[in-house]
């Protein structure tokens, strides 16, 4: 039996740093295809691919690919393991490799989006922003945590993916780890979104109803609203935006509507 081919450790580190350029060539046609291919370069070199084998290897990975930049490195790790397996056993076809990628990139994007973009980033950024507005340099320090997460969040999944290989999919599936993680992240994200809608959107009205000539007469609309539900206006605004987005109005248009609305209401004196 021929000697088993194995990826050199340094080549794995070569793949690991190239993974930072996952979106270098982010484009409309195939998104992260070239990023995926670049990660494979040290892997192919280490496995001694040449000629048609190398050509096919590049073509195999120069296809549509799009996932989450951090957790997606797990897929990159599994790809390295699969290429290693293919180098030893040619019965693993290009289709098997691509099916795996296509099957995993969606769920991983989902987990990463709700975990990082939806939960962790808004929490860190809201805290950092408040510190910064108060003039504290700690705001910058707290914001740097995002960079730490980027490094840690790509390192562990990448090497975990390589060590686990294709078996990791079965492991994740049988333990329902992905589903639990997605659901948990969504619960946290929804809670934090609720907190932030109430604390960060500032919208209040100085309008006084039933005002007469007499001093101190009239009813402050804001007071009435507060006695029904504090922060009712921010909540209403959020639902307006949500409704528009749900009706497929583009975010840019919503942004312009919000700006026009703010200017008009401010000129009319209806909002503070």
């Amino acid at each position: 039996m021929a000697e088993q081919k194995k990826i050199d450790e340094l080549a794995l580190y070569g793949a690991f740093w190239r993974n930072n350029n996952f979106a270098g060539n982010y484009n409309f046609e195939r998104l992260m295809a070239l990023g995926m291919t670049q990660v494979m370069i040290p892997i192919f070199r280490s496995l001694g691919y040449t000629g048609d084998k190398l050509k096919d290897g590049y073509k195999r990975h120069l296809v549509f690919y799009n996932t989450h930049p951090y957790f997606g490195s797990l897929i990159m790790g599994v790809m390295a393991a699969m290429e290693e397996a293919k180098a030893n056993d040619d019965s693993i076809t290009t289709e098997v490799i691509n099916d795996f990628k296509v099957a995993m990139m969606g769920p991983f994007a989902g987990v990463g989006d709700s975990f990082f973009w939806g939960t962790v980033h808004p929490i860190i950024l809201a805290i950092a922003a408040n510190l910064a507005i108060e003039g504290s340099f700690m705001g910058v320090v707290v914001a740097m945590l995002i960079g730490v997460l980027a490094v840690v969040g790509t390192y562990y999944p990448f090497f975990w993916g390589y060590k686990g290989g294709i078996g990791i999919v079965e492991q994740i599936r049988s333990s329902q780890l992905l589903e639990k993680f997605v659901l948990g992240a969504k619960v946290v994200a929804m809670t934090v979104a609720g907190v932030m809608v109430a604390s960060l959107i500032s919208l209040s009205t100085p309008v006084v109803l039933f005002q007469t000539e007499a001093e101190g007469s009239g009813v402050a609309l804001q007071g009435v609203l507060d006695s029904i539900l504090p922060k009712a206006l921010p909540l209403g605004l959020l639902f307006l935006v949500y409704f528009l987005l749900k009706k497929k109005v583009s975010p840019i248009l919503v942004m312009l509507i919000l700006m026009a609305m703010t200017v008009v209401l401010k000129v009319l004196g209806w909002i503070a």
Partner: peptide, 22 residues
Amino acid sequence: NGLGSTGGILPALGFGMLLLII
């Protein structure tokens, strides 16, 4: 003046987009 006060209004867009996804 009006554009200056969009600072308190625009977070609604970010959260709207967030909710749309999750």
